[in-house]
Design a binder for these strands. Structure first.
Length: 462
RNA sequence: GCCCAGGUAGUGUAGAGGCCUAUCAUGAUGCCCUGUCACGGCAUCGACACGGAUUCGAAUUCCGUCCUGGGCGCCA
């Protein structure tokens, strides 16, 4: 028997609406007529909710249940002397984290969390939860990250953990908005590829029928092909795979990349797009995710302002040399301590520009007046690198020359080089690491906390 | 891959050769409790990663294996 919740036409309660959620009428499905828990307010008479048993406090004649759904938590109070026998029976049998359906009258009570509680005439166990739980959802006892990831579906039941992914969802949505408004085409490139045309990072080999194939490390080459195709402005948000055996708090073997490529543009043009995107994503989170931020205990959420400062690679090296013990010179890659030292000095998002051509990929465009440096850049958060990009070499012959200069064989780059011989416009682009963006935005200590199901050197499940 | 630190009830911990029939908290189960909000009280349940060595005696020392965390390296 289902209890129906009557809502006056056009008069949905608005008191406790989270900004992250769109106010919604009762959700009628084949199974239920329920309302989100954050819309259970003192000014409605009846409510039917469905959710998980967050906590139980049994005082004898009086039992308090905290019931949780994705929108919030409400207290359900059962008075032993007054409640129907069926309610008492279910309330006695139910275990924590079971799914229940509860319907009854809503009362305004100061003593209850949120100033309201539900006195049920219906209390139904929809799906019982086994015991003991692999981890404590209420967080009276903390769990190690490894334990949490092993039982991730339970871990993200914690409102504090779920908040990370509400923010991540908003960050993704903000990017789609941003690019769509600016006339970018959204593309999807293949993740199964035949060869490692870029060199550098290691690839995961896969079995592809009778052929050898790999998981793609980056959509880079495909973005560039779409420049030759005349799409002019493209973006893609998708997975990338790196078979590096790294073991750090800021590396993943499967990550999400926000990738952009723009024709008739140079590195400065796409840096502008990048800084404006990041500022926009922060602004959207600040505007729409205040509840999620509060849930995580983020008190000061500063939206970075574009433009971000630019610092030349040579000057960055100088800063690092003055701050760290190990020797560092022009032409070196930035070590982790060097990166951190420069970040401390800058104190905000910034770009490192004018990199030596020798330590950037062959497709980075050298400066015409000084080919020793190139039009490549990294976009940094004080804690780490978030993005790298460049104006690309679009001249076929120069590209062949640069491939050879890196000690690579142009014959292995046939499918990459072909578009460059048939009218390739000048173009520039970048890739931005989604997980690092969310990690630095929220001050997470480990990048794995920014991924639902992280893939690292040792973890392939769940 | 290298270096460091670890692996004790479901979860998080105490433990430094005999004091361990292993601490505390949380949890689960039972009983008491009508306004809790980390509810409270009483009782019960539940663990030394695996293999080997040293020793009269090992959770504790040593070796190996597996696993975990952190730092570094690697990283279009």
């Amino acid at each position: 028997m289902t209890c129906f919740f009557q809502t006056p036409e056009g008069n949905f309660p608005l008191l406790f609406i989270h900004k992250t959620h769109i106010p919604s009428p009762p959700i009628q499905t084949g199974l239920y007529m329920r309302i989100p828990i954050n819309e259970v307010t003192p000014d409605i008479e009846r409510a039917e909710i469905a959710g998980w048993v967050h906590e139980v406090r049994d005082l004898g004649g009086l039992t308090f249940f905290l019931i949780r759904d994705r929108t919030g938590i409400v207290q359900v109070t059962i008075v032993k002397k007054k409640a129907p026998a069926a309610v008492l029976e279910a309330a006695k049998a139910v275990s924590r984290e079971s799914v229940v359906r509860v319907a009854g009258t809503v009362k305004a009570i100061d003593k209850a969390p949120g100033g309201r509680e539900l006195n049920p005439d219906t209390f139904e166990i929809v799906s019982a939860c086994a015991s003991p739980l692999p981890l404590d959802v209420v967080e009276k006892v903390p769990a190690d990250l490894d334990t949490r990831l092993d039982a991730r579906f339970l871990d993200v039941r914690k409102p504090r953990v779920a908040a990370v992914f509400k923010v991540r969802s908003a960050v993704t949505a903000a990017a789609y908005d941003f690019f769509t408004q600016r006339g970018f085409y959204n593309i999807t490139s293949p993740k199964i590829v035949a060869a490692a045309t870029e060199g550098g990072t290691e690839l995961f080999p896969i079995a592809y029928f009778e052929k050898e194939a790999f998981l793609n490390q980056s959509p880079q080459l495909y973005k560039q092909m779409m420049m030759a195709a005349g799409f002019e402005k493209v973006f893609e948000i998708g997975p990338i795979f790196r078979a590096e055996e790294h073991n750090t708090v800021r590396h993943l073997n499967e990550a999400t990349s926000i990738d952009v490529e723009v024709s008739f543009a140079d590195h400065e043009d796409v840096m502008k797009i990048l800084e404006e995107l990041v500022a926009h994503q922060y602004a959207v989170v600040a505007d729409r995710c205040s509840d999620a931020l509060a849930e995580m205990g983020v008190e000061e959420f500063e939206v970075p302002k574009a433009p971000f400062p630019r610092i030349a690679y040579a000057d960055a090296i100088e800063i690092a040399a003055g701050k760290i013990e190990e020797p560092i010179a022009c032409g070196d890659d930035l070590s982790t301590p060097a990166e951190r030292a420069i970040g401390d000095e800058m104190g905000e998002h910034y770009f490192i520009v004018d990199w030596p051509s020798a330590i950037r990929p062959y497709y980075a465009m050298p400066y015409e007046d000084d080919p020793a440096i190139c039009k490549a850049f990294d976009m940094m958060h004080p804690r780490m690198e978030l993005s790298s990009g460049a104006q690309r070499v679009h001249q076929h012959d120069l590209l062949v020359e640069q491939i050879q200069a890196k000690g690579l064989n142009p014959e292995n780059f046939e499918f990459y080089l072909q578009p460059f011989a048939y009218g390739m416009p000048p173009h520039a682009g970048w890739g931005l690491g989604m997980e690092r963006l969310v990690m630095t935005m929220l001050g997470l200590q480990n990048i794995r906390e920014a991924v639902l199901f992280p893939r690292d050197r040792h973890r392939v499940v769940p």
